[in-house]
Amino acid sequence: MKYKSNFFFEKIFKTILKITSLIVIGIFILLFYSLVERSIPSLFQNGLEILFGTSWDPNFEIFGGAPAILGTLFSSAIALIFALPISLCIAIFYTEYGPVRLRPFISGIMDLLAAIPSVIYGIWGLWTLSPILKINFQEPIIASIGFIPIFSGPAYGLSIFLASLILTIMITPIISSISIDIFSKTPMHLREGMFALGATKWEVIKNVVFPFAKRGVFAATILGLGRALGETMAVTMVIGNSYLWPFKSVSLFASASTITSKIASEFPESVVNLIHNSSLISLALILLIISISINFVAEIISKKSVGG
């Protein structure tokens, strides 16, 4: 009797687990299905315009996504260019040069920076950082080297530059925490082998730690990139949401759009116009494809790094 009831419960338990797994798989498949379904009207009407078109005017049903797509790629790339060296420096300080006592503080700072909601980065960027940067950074630069197109005026406080800066602050904790983990795993016997040859700390970092951590840091960078590409609130609040950049002005200080800022700022009003709504969702689909392929690459690389 007891054996039978156990068998029964075992079966029920397994079935429940299987059903929940199928639900999650279902959600996953449905996600793609419904985004594709909602994108179809736009894809039919706009065709490749959604990828390459440079203007966007719902009144005339013109939906060119290029400025938003480029804005997404560009702001994320700039953020990465700053965040990667900063993160490496933090990881170097944490694992090599800094006193062990400081470690909990550094990881605390990184964890809290990563935890702050993006809408709070947004309000801070919009009302605190933007006016300060406009007066003390953008305007002096425009006044001195404004003849170079990418630094030309006028100074929009809310700009692709500000968005990239805030993205840098937001993704640095991600890249640096993973880098710290990987740096700490550098085998002691390799470090010591290099020290025993009379190497300085920096030479040990360069010759032993970096080669060891290379792949993992790359995967971390891709992860940070994925986060930057999909970041919505902070970017929407500080980028200005105009379609100026990069076809009407190439200035870093011009306001611009990203895929996410376009969607967040126009979605509610788009609900009344199927093509408009569908075009925004096809932008989301493009973002989804970009971010999935990037995560896929990171996955492959980090799996390989386990072996070497």
Binding site: H189, E192, M194, G198, A199, T200, N207, V208, P211, F212
Partner: peptide
């Protein structure tokens, strides 16, 4: 310390050639 270690070489218990070299 760097000068000391250059003049006094060391071989470890576990062979540790640098794998990236």
């Amino acid at each position: 310390a760097m000068e000391v270690r250059r003049k006094i070489g060391m071989v470890f218990q576990k062979p540790n050639p640098f794998p990236n070299m």
